[in-house]
Structure formats: C-alpha cells, structure tokens
Amino acid sequence: MSVKAAVIRFPGSNCDHDALRALSETQGIEACYHWHEEKIPKNTYQLVVIPGGFSFGDYLRAGAIAKLSNAMLSLPDAVEAGAHVLGICNGFQILIESRMLPGYLQVNSGLKFVSKLVDLRVESAAYPWLRDEDRGATLKVPVAHRFGNFQVPKIDLAEVSPVFRYEVNPNGSFQDIAGIYRKFGNGSVMGMMPHPERASFPALRLADGQRLWQNAVRALR
C-alpha cells in the first residue's frame, strides 16, 4: 500500500508542482492535488502538504484569507483522525493564521525578500518526517520569503518543538527557529519557512529534502 498524500492548492500557490513532484518521485508515496474549496475528508490522506506561494495574493496578511477555505476549516478534524500536515513557507503562514501552530510571522528583520540556500540543523524528531537519528543533521535547503521572521510570545516546549534552526539566521526569527512541530490528536502539524520540496532532486545536486519524504514512507507504510 502506498502512502496517500495531498497537496492543497489555493489561487496563488506556486510551489504546488514542486511539492507534488517531490512526493510523487518518492517510492511508496501516491500524491494528488486537492483544491482548497473541497473539504479534506477524514482518513483519506496520511500526508497533507500546504505548499508555498502567495495564496490569495497575500492580501490582508499572508495566509489570512486561505485560513477560511473549506480545506483549511476541515483540516483539524482530518488531523485529529490521524493525518500529518506539513506547511511550507506560505503553508506555514496559513497554519499560523489558522492557529494550528502558535506564534506569528513578522516581516524579515532586513525588510527584504530573502531567497537563498541555507543550512538547517535538525533539532528534534518529528514523526513521521524526522527520526531520532536525524537529530543533529544539517540539511541544505532554499528559503524564499518576506514574512518568515517567526516570533512567539512564549513557547510551551511540552506542546511545540522547534524542529529546525538556521545555522545563519536569514530573517531574525526567535532563537533561529526555522520550523516547528506539534502533535495534534492522532496526527501532527509541522510548519517551516524553508523549502524541502525544492531540494528533492539529485539532478539539481540539491536533495536533502528527500529525507522527509523517505522517512514518512518508512514510518507510515
């Protein structure tokens, strides 16, 4: 049995193709697109990826409009039932706006859009994406964002774990945090600013992101 994965698409998503391809090219994953107007059915997808881009043109605040879509409103139930969600970049912004993850994303401290390769340190396991053995590993992955300066008034480490930290902080985020993870019912929610789906192709000599997809297959199949 393949692991079933969905990539939610919004008007303005632009990393949906990369995400679908990164998932589909992983042996053991069967991935499809999921239009935002449709509810996410329970017990259908084991993995749900919210891709990067500019959903709804980033109007009002990045992610603020997308959180009201049928897909996002139905997502918590699917996660409670066991789905594992990964929000990448704009996907992370949407998860934060929908309060499935804590904190807020402020404009980068340099005020500029930052697009470059960064080194990410894996800080903790995050089932099914990262295992205990991955702790301490460094992944080379691109970032591309203007609102990626993650801040949090207080972080309850019992509930939320910082999964990734930047080796060199590109945006001023709190404690160099690049991604966070929490368990949620029988499933989980992970959000990160960097783009593992863009670093999933050996032909580009940029394939560290594959670790997430391969781990997910190993954990869930």
Binding site: L60, R61, A64, E97, R99, P102, Y104, Q106, Q151, P153
Partner: peptide, 8 residues
C-alpha cells in the same frame, strides 16, 4: 475573525 491577527 479576519481583519486583525490578535496574536500580534
């Protein structure tokens, strides 16, 4: 509900 993000 929408216009403000009351976290920040």
């Amino acid at each position: 509900k929408l216009l403000a993000n009351v976290v920040m």
